[in-house]
Structure formats: C-alpha cells, structure tokens
C-alpha cells in the first residue's frame, strides 16, 4: 500500500465531489483531483520514486513537500527540473521522471 487520497465521501470536512484531472507519468495515465499538485497526483497513483540520483542512481521522491529540498524534480511537458510539489496538475500534463547521469570522464582522466 502507499499514499492515498481520502475518498471525499469519507472526509469529515464534507467536501463536494472533486473534478478529475488526468496526467501521464512516463506515458502511463494517472488521475487525481483538480487543484492537486503534480506530486500529489503521482504519489496517489502509487509511484513513490520521482527520479534517480546522478551519483548512485538511487531512487528519490517527495521529501519536504513544500518546495525546499528539490528531491521531487520532474520534467513536465518538456520543461525540466520542475518541483512536482509546487506545480498544480493540469489536464494532459506529460510528466517524465528524470535521471541525470554524470557526464563521462574526459579521455585520459584516470578517475
């Protein structure tokens, strides 16, 4: 199990039924509630890994949730390095997860 949006019927704050918003994450459709952040829609679709790191290729996802840590960077509609927690999802947004490999060592560099 993973992150989950609270079904509006069960929410004690008595919300109205949310309008859906649909994006794609690496080509796979994901649907959330209109007004959610990209991070929220991606998390609720069952994806915790938003990118892989450059040095170790380690998985990373949302950490601070308020735009400070830059760990949730994704590509959105061809625009790189967008903090998914800060950008609201719009219908049709195409999200691509990022993995920025380190550049190859120059020829002759022993390291």
């Amino acid at each position: 199990m993973t992150s989950r949006i609270l079904p509006f019927q069960n929410d004690p704050i008595k919300p109205t039924a949310p309008a859906p918003v649909t994006i794609t994450v690496d080509g796979v459709p994901a649907t959330g509630a209109m007004g959610q952040s990209l991070a929220g829609v991606i998390l609720a679709s069952g994806t915790l890994r938003f990118r892989r790191t450059s040095v170790h290729g380690a998985p990373r996802g949302v950490f601070c949730g308020i735009g400070v840590c830059y760990d949730c960077l994704v590509e959105v509609n061809g625009q790189r390095d967008v903090r998914a927690c800060q950008r609201r999802a719009r219908d049709g947004d195409a999200v691509v997860t990022q993995h920025d490999e380190l550049p190859a060592a120059p020829a002759g560099d022993a390291a």
Binding site: I13, Q36, G40, L48, F50, V62, F63, C64, G65, C85
Partner: peptide
C-alpha cells in the same frame, strides 16, 4: 522514497487530503 518530513505530510493532508 516514503521518508517524508512532517511538513510534507501536513501540506499534502491539509492542501490535498492525501495521506
């Protein structure tokens, strides 16, 4: 992934109703 700050949990719960 899956380790969050308290602030992240708060922001997603209060701003999106996401656990």
């Amino acid at each position: 992934p899956g380790v969050f700050t308290g602030g992240a949990a708060q922001a997603l719960a209060k701003g999106e109703r996401l656990a």
